[in-house]
Computed example of a mutant assay.
Amino acid sequence: MSPRARRALALAGGLGLLALAVALVLNALQSNLVFFFSPSQVAAREAPQSGSYRLGGLVERGSLRREADGVTLRFVVTDTAHAVPVRYQGLLPDLFREGKGVVVAGRLEPDGVFRATEVLAKHDENYMPPQAADAVRRASAPGPRPGEAR
């Protein structure tokens, strides 16, 4: 085999390995990607019906209920226009409060309850995830609600 052919073969092999590495990295990123949705988007069926995502908004006042087992909690996440019931089994962050901002990760079950695997609370009195704050602001704005006729 001539030196030119060996060089071309090595270059083709190197490009093939690079393409394989890029494909593996993109696949790993895609499988770990988690999207954020507001309760209004869930109500409008913009959120995936299967698969995990994050739901953000405010914890509705008076909605927090602890079940008899002591570790299962039920509460409602709202953006003031729509609300989604949430079920979570585990310990809540110290900063979790009714009426405050929250982001929960999990999936929406066929019964319409969001089964949370993780609860993220605000960091201080002024913090709310930007997407959640935007969803609450849009839901509170005057005018037709999502899905209503103009």
Results as ranks from 00 to 15, higher is better:
4 R>C: 00
64 L>D: 08
120 L>I: 14
49 Q>T: 12
26 L>Y: 07
145 R>A: 11
21 A>L: 08
67 E>K: 10
32 N>R: 14
42 V>N: 04
29 L>I: 09
40 S>D: 03
141 A>G: 04
54 R>C: 08
36 F>N: 13
118 E>D: 12
55 L>Y: 01
93 P>K: 09
138 R>G: 07
58 L>R: 02
63 S>G: 04
66 R>W: 00
73 L>D: 12
7 R>P: 00
58 L>K: 02
72 T>N: 03
22 V>W: 12
40 S>L: 07
148 E>G: 06
65 R>C: 04
70 G>S: 05
110 P>F: 06
27 N>P: 02
106 G>A: 00
83 A>W: 12
135 A>Q: 02
136 V>Y: 11
146 P>L: 11
64 L>C: 07
16 G>P: 00
127 Y>F: 15
97 R>I: 03
110 P>H: 05
54 R>V: 07
24 L>E: 10
26 L>T: 13
92 L>W: 03
43 A>T: 08
53 Y>W: 11
78 T>H: 11
63 S>A: 00
61 R>K: 11
27 N>W: 01
89 Q>W: 03
107 R>P: 02
150 R>Y: 15
40 S>R: 08
6 R>M: 08
117 T>L: 10
56 G>T: 03
32 N>K: 12
44 A>G: 02
145 R>Q: 10
131 Q>K: 11
69 D>Q: 04
38 S>F: 03
137 R>D: 13
41 Q>C: 09
64 L>E: 10
60 E>F: 02
148 E>P: 00
123 H>N: 12
82 H>Y: 13
11 L>A: 13
65 R>I: 11
76 V>T: 15
52 S>D: 12
50 S>R: 11
61 R>C: 07
112 G>S: 01
132 A>E: 02
57 G>V: 01
101 G>S: 10
109 E>A: 15
5 A>T: 10
133 A>E: 14
100 K>I: 14
83 A>Q: 14
16 G>R: 02
80 T>M: 12
35 F>L: 15
48 P>F: 02
143 G>T: 01
24 L>N: 08
25 V>S: 05
58 L>H: 05
137 R>E: 13
136 V>C: 02
134 D>N: 14
94 D>Y: 09
60 E>M: 06
78 T>W: 15
15 L>T: 04
99 G>D: 04
125 E>V: 12
30 Q>S: 12
125 E>C: 08
8 A>F: 00
73 L>Q: 14
69 D>W: 00
70 G>Y: 06
147 G>D: 05
147 G>A: 01
135 A>G: 03
